[in-house]
Design a protein around this nucleic acid. Structure first.
Lengths: 123, 123
DNA sequence: TCAATAGTTCATATTTCCCGAACTATTGAA
DNA sequence: TTCAATAGTTCGGGAAATATGAACTATTGA
């Protein structure tokens, strides 16, 4: 099993970061890791929203976030300890990750509202 | 020839916007349109950086930016008039596009420096 | 009416992505 | 130590998304 790759932020093209966040599952995972910036095992994301994510897919998603310099993953016994690298990224690209995480939250809130409305009108 | 689509910002998933910007050519085009927020024809981007972009590819790129709600394209005679929709996006997701455009600029500056260094060391 | 210019659409070859199956690594128990 | 359980990774191949040449459309100016 090859070692995990954690690139220097300076070596990550901006597009790679944006690509990593340009997926509903990954941006949700990332926003979650940022919010409660303590450990987060991979398997705690086997369901994201309503969706079930297969283990192998999840592993790929974490790899993409990792190699985009957005998170750091360390083994802690049998499971993984994932933390965000926000501070490092922020030093290079100020405010970007915060703005994206914030946007994600805004979108979630907007969705919450519309699904609540749908429920109340029996749709 | 079917009419161009300009969705409401509220109808564009955040991921679609990020996806649109997660490409080196598109983020360069977008940053340029934002910077000098006057007209920018499509064909003014037939070369981006060092790269030659085929016309058909460029057309796809503009379509993706447009349908992600990031730009507005209007016909002006024989060519296209592209403007950013930053203000509208900003109303929903404050600061996000500015932070990304800024990040792109920072990356460009960093690259400028390293290529200058390479040139000076005869590489 | 025609040629020139700017962009779009279509077809398809290529690339990327998803996910089941098999594998690896760590731990705790027998 | 061996074994079972748990957490994650890797691999392979089918599905989906991209890139681009060729053909097309729309507008203008001669």
């Amino acid at each position: 099993m090859r070692p995990l790759i954690h690139p220097e932020i300076a070596d990550v093209p901006l597009e790679l970061m944006l690509h990593a966040l340009a997926d509903p599952v990954r941006v949700a995972i990332f926003a979650d890791i940022v919010k409660q910036d303590c450990s987060q095992s991979c398997s705690s994301f086997l369901t994201v929203g309503e969706k079930q994510i297969p283990k192998s897919t999840l592993s790929q998603h974490f790899k993409i976030l990792r190699e985009a310099g957005l998170i750091r993953s360390e083994r802690r016994g049998v499971e993984m300890h994932n933390t965000s690298r926000c501070a490092e990224v922020d030093a290079r690209y100020p405010g970007m990750l915060a703005a994206i995480a914030n946007a994600h939250q805004i979108q979630m809130n907007a969705r919450e509202k519309t699904t609540a409305k749908k429920r109340s009108t029996r749709r």
